[in-house]
Amino acid sequence: MGQKKTTIQISGMRCVSCGKTIEKALKKQPGVISANVNVATEKGIVEYDSNKISIEKIGETIRGTGYEPIGITHEDERTREISLKLTGMTCASCAAKIEKALNSVKGVRRASVNFATEKATVEYAPEVATLMDLRKTVQSVGYDISEEKEVDKSLVEMQRARVRMLVAWGFTIPIILWMLPEMIFGVAWPNWEIYNLGIILLAVPVIFWVGLPTLRAAAKTIYHKSTNMDVLIA
């Protein structure tokens, strides 16, 4: 018990003011010594006195500002996530056997094996378990590891954002091209009914799929009687 430092993964932030809102709310709580939120990494580092405030209360405070704490890591509980290329699997039961063995290793928080890609994703505490422990565990059930690669979570998130951007442009460019004759010549092709319906149908995926994270964040912010950039955009 006593003074602790915790790193919290926070979802829903879109701008610097989002981070400032969370920091301000946390610093008002009795027992919070310091709070620093980085919007770029979507993480908040909170130093607090566990005798005065619980981590659950800190999470509630963040939710109260309209954002969601999705992962909490204490200073002495840092984990590492790696991707392991496996060899020797011939069926789904092989993957299940490896997954069970890896999850039984002390220090492993989570392990999942994908038979189709022949890869295992393992989250573990490097202070407790080592890569050698993981390799020996896989070998003990009759398989092996041919490659080890650390998972870059920021890169995964960037790839998801790239997909959303491509989908957005894939629907937006046809909208722009279709609107040009109407904007320049005042002519809706082929007629006004089809033109209006087509524009709406093309806009729906952009607004309600690509823009879903923004709409959700805006709804949460309004629910908590606050405003931010998400509310302005929505």
Rank of each mutant, 00 (worst) to 15 (best):
M1Q: 04
G2W: 03
Q3W: 02
Q3D: 06
K4H: 02
T6D: 03
T7W: 14
R14G: 14
S17V: 14
C18Y: 06
G19W: 05
K20T: 12
T21H: 07
E23K: 05
K24M: 11
A25H: 07
K27Y: 02
K27G: 13
K28F: 00
K28M: 13
Q29R: 14
P30A: 08
I33L: 07
I33H: 01
S34F: 05
S34C: 12
S34Q: 09
V37L: 15
N38G: 12
A40L: 15
A40S: 14
K43S: 08
G44M: 13
G44A: 15
D49C: 13
D49M: 12
I55Y: 06
K57A: 15
I58E: 08
G59F: 07
E60G: 04
E60R: 07
R63T: 11
G64P: 03
G64C: 10
G66D: 13
G66L: 13
Y67N: 13
E68Y: 04
P69H: 12
P69I: 14
P69F: 08
I70E: 08
G71N: 11
I72T: 12
I72L: 10
T73P: 02
E77T: 11
E81F: 02
I82F: 00
S83I: 06
S83T: 04
S83M: 09
L86T: 08
G88M: 11
G88H: 05
S93H: 06
A95N: 00
A96E: 08
I98W: 01
K100Q: 14
A101M: 09
L102H: 08
N103I: 12
S104E: 13
S104L: 09
G107D: 06
G107P: 00
A111G: 07
A111Q: 06
S112V: 14
V113M: 11
T117Y: 11
K119E: 14
A120T: 10
T121R: 02
V122P: 00
E123Y: 03
Y124D: 10
A125I: 13
P126N: 06
L131F: 00
L131Y: 00
L131D: 03
M132E: 03
M132I: 04
R135G: 14
R135T: 15
T137C: 00
T137P: 05
V138N: 00
D144P: 04
I145A: 06
I145N: 03
S146P: 01
S146M: 02
E148T: 05
K149P: 00
E150F: 01
D152I: 10
D152V: 12
S154P: 04
L155A: 09
V156K: 13
Q159H: 10
R162E: 10
R164K: 04
M165H: 01
L166Y: 01
G170F: 06
T172H: 01
P174I: 03
I175Y: 01
I175E: 05
M179T: 09
L180W: 02
L180D: 05
E182V: 03
I184T: 08
F185H: 11
G186R: 01
V187H: 10
V187E: 08
A188L: 13
W189T: 13
W192P: 09
Y195E: 04
Y195G: 04
L197T: 07
L197Q: 07
I199S: 02
I200D: 02
A203F: 02
F208L: 02
W209V: 07
G211C: 02
T214M: 14
R216C: 00
A217K: 05
A217H: 03
A219L: 11
K220G: 11
T221I: 15
S226V: 05
N228H: 06
A234L: 09
